[in-house]
Design a protein around this nucleic acid. Sequence first.
DNA 1: GTCTATAAGAGGATAGAC
DNA 2: GTCTATCCTCTTATAGAC
Lengths: 187, 187
Amino acid sequence: MPDRKTALLDSAERAARSRGFDGFSYADMARDVGIRTASIHYHFPSKADLSAALMSRYHESFAEICAQIDARHGTASARLIALIDCYRLAHGDAQRVCLCVAFSISRESLSTQVAGQLGAFRTMMRDWIEAVFRLAQTDGTIADVADPAAEAAATLALLEGAQLSARAENAPARFDDALRSMLSRAS
Amino acid sequence: MPDRKTALLDSAERAARSRGFDGFSYADMARDVGIRTASIHYHFPSKADLSAALMSRYHESFAEICAQIDARHGTASARLIALIDCYRLAHGDAQRVCLCVAFSISRESLSTQVAGQLGAFRTMMRDWIEAVFRLAQTDGTIADVADPAAEAAATLALLEGAQLSARAENAPARFDDALRSMLSRAS
DNA sequence: GTCTATAAGAGGATAGAC
DNA sequence: GTCTATCCTCTTATAGAC
């Protein structure tokens, strides 16, 4: 039984990730949660406030996920596979993309604060992935790692691009098609 | 001196690729081209018509580009590098993404016709890239090609994800960061 | 082909009652 | 906290004059 504010964030996140930042409205959320649009402004005065709260929660959530992966998995390959599983699960059979992807295209519609949060999220993820590839150079569980920073940038782009591909074609299998080569390096 | 219809398509494409499908309006195009919004409806009765024309032109344009790459470059690595160069150029220092990327996120806002065109474009590109990787298995100019279909899906996702990364962070270098590992396989 | 005028609706947002 | 009522702006689209 989440409180109303959480229910609103959940609704907004679902909508943003399936229709983009410019593709959902307070009216959608109101219908979804069962209150009037005016009431939403009590919790989130403006859409900029709402999206900042959305990004903030998303950032914390992924920081937690990465920490848990580190705690549960000791090898680079296991950590990479766990992250890929997480992205696959999150995009729910091609129905949603990562919030980061959803906001990236609408960058010009975002407040400067949210644009900053978007950059911070991407930096966090890239740094974490880079650490995984650096570990791989030591433990040898991922093949042919020459440049961990480049691998990290490529992996983040690949994960997001794979979600986008699957979403564009409404074909969940596209996600796994795009990740197949990367997964084969990690086994 | 392009005709007005072409000028409108150019304006719409620029806008869609920098702000997304839901992020541009007839008013923007009218300001851009120097006519009134009502006049645009003479050329494109609805936004669905406009976006169909946009996708159609985009599809033909890339089919032509791929054909020219085939004509000019004989090796798999040269063809792959040429495609990457084309995507880098097209995204103009992180200012724009591919039309396909721009439309993918707003998939639910698109007419069924345009959604179909989106799928057809992606299939064309994936097939062409797959042929490049099949050639690589013969001419050996790209390292470690095990599964051309998987490589094609990954490459398309990587190219689009790289554009998205650069756009999200307003950092042109992100595109090359993400492509570095792939380029090092092709040299 | 392009214009003015206008419709009809959706969007974000506020004021004030309860 | 939530409501009704309301505002203003933007958006797509149409009618009809020129």
